[in-house]
Design a protein around this nucleic acid. Structure first.
Lengths: 345, 345
DNA sequence: TTTAGCACTCGGCTTATTAGAGTGCTAATA
DNA sequence: TATTAGCACTCTAATAAGCCGAGTGCTAAA
């Protein structure tokens, strides 16, 4: 489909106006606000054509037009111009990533907050995906009689710990010995490669050399390791922003939306799938989920050393400032990637 | 103030009916549903008296009566009978605490979810308060060249970790040495007692014996330790439950409420203050915060080995089933305390 | 002291009315 | 042929009017 010349200008005007005001846009409004040099009647004719193409629609007979999902799609793919962040904004984003470099999770949480703040939509971050990460360090710490702590650090800088009970007789030296052994076998192992066969061979090895009572312990901790890569963590912020949008005045709408935002599985599904790298845009009904029929989800990936390890995105009304949101997301993702590289690379 | 005999019965009927239905209660309704053996007219007279006492009020002239904050207060303090959980419910709660004993934070998160589920209000848990906890174990782990991990385990079973940069030359042995030294000095120290003077003396000691470059590192980690006791963690669940309440149909109300629930500081203030141990009830305007004018907050404390270390509670509409909610809270808090004792004691 | 009866009040629901925005069509115009 | 002015028509949202019902307070009788 190609929409050129005046039609294109009118389509753009409708979308921009609707994004700005949230009200259906009439022919007179366009003639007045965007001086295309033609009368409302002419614009009406063009609008009828655009509607036939499925790019805009009428909520009811005597209302103006609003963009359809397809209209937004065409606008984003073919018409929209890139929004350029002001240098002040860029500076602000950069500076937010510079101050206090904590652990990766803190950085992701901050990034989520930043996106929510800059876009005024709900922001979500997923990750880091741990499948490709390898184990950097495994350590069993003695805590107190009968208590030990397993700590695992991955190459992505994620720290996982698990406190658990051990036979009361276990002493520090045993744990240290075990740690050394585990490190030898697991260091550098990619999490995806931790399979039952590997675990089993380690298990046998431990059985042969170590205090028998510790075996159950080992089983337990190996299971924990397997869990590490299972599910990407979720960071969520700016939920309240959605309440400011006029389309979410309806309490039922909000309920459905919050319901989704609370369920990690649903969120993960909505935000995780996508192209291997870069920007993904799902408009309105392009998302399967009914509760977000009138929402769009934009995500971009972030990476460490060129490898995609997660994504950040926003959930907002279909009537969203795509241009600006995309710029914010891409810029934040870039800075985020750099920050993480400094942190973990 | 004393309210006895028939008046008392009528007040109770009004409150029970209003809690159940959410509608203002009229004299005829009371006469029909609660057979007090008197006519509506008589009840009307009594109601006029109760209104004069400030225990009930009229939304408008031609409506029934609803309890005032004072009315709820009187009901809770003087009239209400204890709700007894069914043995099935008790069993369910117990069993929820038995399965998978993880770390303290997991247990608290589970408890919060359990309360939300059983009460249908929003549930909050605060804690564990770390002021009185002592340090059980401090460990510096070598992660990779230039990276180390500080792990601290407190007597409450809280694990705190912090990944940070160290001079590239630092090797495993140095960190181990440092760990031993820190453990010697810090083990058993109550977190509240970690004061600048103590830190300084340790700092001097380290300076004398250790690789000079590690000194900045030590300063950093000591700061981290100080932060441990700073703020109680917050667990929140069941926010969506509030949407089911008819009083929160109004979007503005919900917005204000969610706004509070998102701000940890506000939440902490609302839930943290209270008597040293046991149950606390704040009804409607007894809470200073305007956004929760029509909400009540109930909290109970939980403890480890007789020492209060946090509390759990609910936020719900003033028109709340106090009797049942109190029972749930107290029972869950008891089981929670026991579970934590098993976990940390 | 209690109660029956009655007039009165007031919110909420339903219906009717109106104003306004916007359309599509037609016929005139450039 | 493309554009535009004019006009009748449509539909929503907002306002007003009217009615219903629940509930009250008061009075007078039991």
């Amino acid at each position: 489909m190609r929409v050129e010349g005046r039609k294109r200008k009118i389509l753009e005007a409708i979308i921009l106006d609707y994004i700005a005001t949230g009200e259906p846009v009439g022919s007179r409004t366009i003639a007045r606000r965007y001086n295309l040099g033609v009368s409302p009647a002419t614009i009406r004719n063009e609008m009828a054509d655009l509607e036939e193409l499925g790019l805009i629609e009428q909520p009811h007979t005597s209302a103006g037009r609003i963009p359809s999902d397809l209209g937004y799609r065409y606008y984003i793919d073919c018409i929209m111009e890139r929004y350029e962040l002001s240098s002040a904004e860029k500076e602000y984003i950069r500076q937010r990533f510079e101050q206090k470099m904590g652990e990766i999770e803190q950085v992701l949480a901050d990034a989520t907050g930043l996106i929510a703040e800059l876009t005024s939509y709900a922001a979500v971050a997923l990750g880091p995906y741990q499948g490709r990460a390898h184990i950097q360090q495994v350590q069993l710490l003695y805590v107190s009689p009968g208590k030990a702590l397993l700590v695992v650090v991955t190459s992505n800088g994620l720290v996982e710990h698990h406190l658990f009970s051990v036979p009361r007789g276990v002493i520090r030296a045993e744990l240290n010995y075990l740690s050394r052994l585990l490190n030898e076998r697991l260091q550098g192992i990619v999490l995806e490669d931790i399979k039952p066969s590997l675990l089993n061979s380690i298990y046998q090895e431990l059985l042969a050399t170590e205090h028998k009572q510790l075996c159950s312990l080992v089983i337990e901790l190996l299971e924990e390791l397997g869990n590490l890569k299972r599910e990407a963590r979720i960071f969520l912020d700016g939920t309240l922003n959605l309440f400011e949008q006029p389309e979410f005045r309806n309490i039922e709408r909000v309920k459905g939306l919050l319901c989704i935002l609370e369920k990690s599985d649903a969120l993960r599904e909505l935000f995780a799938e996508g192209p291997p790298a870069g920007l993904r845009i799902k408009i309105g009904r392009e998302n399967k989920n009914e509760e977000i029929n009138n929402c769009s989800i934009l995500t971009v990936t972030y990476e460490i050393n060129g490898e995609v390890i997660g994504n950040v995105g926003v959930l907002g009304p279909t009537r969203m400032n795509y241009s600006r949101t995309i710029s914010v997301l891409e810029y934040v993702a870039r800075e985020l990637s750099q920050a993480l590289e400094k942190l973990c690379g």
